[in-house]
Design a protein around this nucleic acid. Structure first.
Lengths: 337, 337
DNA sequence: GTGCAAATTGACAGCGCTGTCAATTGTGTC
DNA sequence: GACACAATTGACAGCGCTGTCAATTTGCAC
């Protein structure tokens, strides 16, 4: 029925253990033997049974991607990361599973424990904002489960992928400044998320560098959602004088800002400039198309997973890879009225 | 170190096999024994090792969700379905994996074979449009892998979940008719997708019922993407007389239509009404908010998975559950100019 | 009580692979 | 050609669970 490792061994005229060595790419197999075994595997269309490999070898060939389904960013962002992680796992014949991990409440460490005990992933990919929950990272290290992070706050002791979000945010605000804006507002994200802090820091840095004193009224706290963008915009548009540009910490909030502008009959970008961050598909579908920072999410997921896999396969320590960003100037920003 | 089934057995004073029976919810265990074993499992925080269960029991506790990453609908739609499937699997302690399966080319059956041979899912959830590829369904039946479908074209021999899309489309067009529109255009989806056929059929049915002769120029083929909506709109807006309303077969294409309207300086809904289908988050973020058909995607994923799980757990044959839709009248439709 | 069927429980082998460690073969040196 | 040592290969047990089937207990009629 099913072709087993033993069958391959018989055909190649070697012991099962040798086939196992070839299968696992281990050293100490002569080239001749390796070729013979590989040929036999192909001829017989051999597919190792992962449950047997897991049981005997005490590993799962499983990578779990954890995300926060509570305070999570736009689902398109996660979907893209997932896509990249999956591609990387496929390339190395690892399985991938996605696990939501609600970060509200204080028992999320025990929920992490449950995921590990139930599924025994060989490694974990962490997505924002759970890249930064200290107790969770601590537990992961205690249990010695290797992990890689997408956009972690700390660049020390972390492997995965990062982007210089502060510089990206500064680039965006510099763009607004160069158009002539001075009264630039910022809608920030959830306060303790790295993304919020960096993007706010970039905004402040750009404003300070332009010699503009900080006006606290111009910075409004959002929550990365469309609805929070709407609320923030209502607040900002009530200011006197009104800001001439709004930099939202992500595209969903920017779309909320544009919504309110439309509601008030304000023309974007003639009456007010709006820009976002992430470049999710929505950004190009809005009218006018949203000026934003392009973040290569799919690629970032892939790179983070590859770093993890390097560790899992004993190929090296893995590192934190820096990804480039780009400013996508579209139609939602222009000179102030 | 790790608590094994044997340890639980010793503690409960029964044989390992009996603990196994309790674990698998099998019949023929006395209540007293069952209680004792359950208690022991809890006290020891026993977690069965799924690789051992899979190996010995010849099943994987794995549900694979297949999607077409080539002609797939909006990723938000899939993300929602995935979420629902995951919830259902979690509830029954099944694992879930997502697998893209490119449907271009003619070797997709062998790629399906590879997925089955590599991962041995106990069952499969099919998402549109791969719910309808006959050779693939045939192979699944040959290999006796149970599957459930989300929105399959054929209601015979299928379990999973469906929605009366034709009636939904008709409801949408009836809405436009009731506003006074007569020259109503339709942007259809990829021709052989069930979703396209139903939505087109609903459009035709409504038009015919209103006594309007079919004008072939009013039906333009799209591909479910934003870009195809843009192309279709350019074509439709060149007609003389111009249609007063456009019903796009999904929200992404509707947003493309609105984009072109904006580009031409046409006001939605004053100059032209636009509506879509699916109610993805984008629909409420557009200005004006898009009138559309709400499809409970997350719930549909969950229901389809539950039907599959019923089969996998030997609880019954599963059935095709009908889900309700609703017409979401928002701000993109109004009386014709 | 006895006898019999049904319900409950257990003994044991084995799922397909890998870890451990021992056996064998090859290589280089003198 | 003999020796030491490294490289290669294999024998065997066992990972933690479940399927099979036999043993035991229980319930019930008489």
């Amino acid at each position: 029925m099913r072709v087993r490792l033993e069958d391959v061994a018989r055909r190649a005229g070697v012991s099962p253990k040798t086939v196992s060595r070839v299968l696992n790419d281990e050293a100490n197999v002569s080239d001749a033997t390796r070729k013979r075994v590989t040929a036999a595997m192909e001829e017989m269309a051999y597919r190792p049974l992962s449950s047997a490999r897991s049981l005997a070898g005490n590993r799962s060939f499983l990578v779990a991607m954890l995300y926060d389904n509570n305070d999570n960013p736009a689902s398109t962002y996660l979907a893209e990361i997932q896509d990249g992680v999956l591609e990387a796992c496929d390339a190395h014949r690892y399985n991938m599973m996605v696990r939501p991990l609600r970060m509200r409440g204080d028992d999320f460490v025990s929920r992490l424990d449950a995921v590990i005990s139930d599924h025994h992933p060989d490694g974990i990919v962490l997505t924002p904002p759970i890249t930064d929950y200290a107790p969770l990272l601590k537990r992961l290290r205690e249990r010695k489960v290797p992990f890689a992070s997408v956009s972690p706050v700390s660049r020390e002791d972390n492997i995965g992928v990062a982007m210089d979000e502060q510089r990206a945010a500064r680039t965006m605000v510099d763009h607004l400044l160069s158009l002539g804006h001075r009264r630039i507002a910022h809608v920030s994200g959830i306060a303790d998320h790295g993304a919020s802090r960096w993007r706010l820091a970039g905004y402040r840095e750009a404003m300070a560098a332009a010699g503009l004193a900080e006006d606290p009224a111009l910075v409004v706290q959002g929550a990365f959602t469309f609805a929070s963008g709407v609320t923030a915009a209502r607040q900002l548009f009530a200011l006197e004088p009104r800001p001439t540009a709004v930099f939202a910490a992500n595209d969903d909030m920017a779309s909320g800002v544009m919504w309110v502008a439309n509601e008030r009959g304000m023309k974007v970008p003639q009456d007010i400039s709006v820009c976002g961050f992430d470049d999710i598909p929505l950004a190009s579908q809005l009218w006018p198309a949203l000026t934003t920072i392009r973040q290569p999410s799919r690629e970032m997921g892939k790179v983070a997973a590859l770093q993890l896999l390097e560790v899992l396969r004993g190929r090296g320590p893995g590192r934190l890879v820096e990804m480039p960003f780009s400013l996508e100037v579209r139609d939602s920003t222009a000179a102030p009225p």
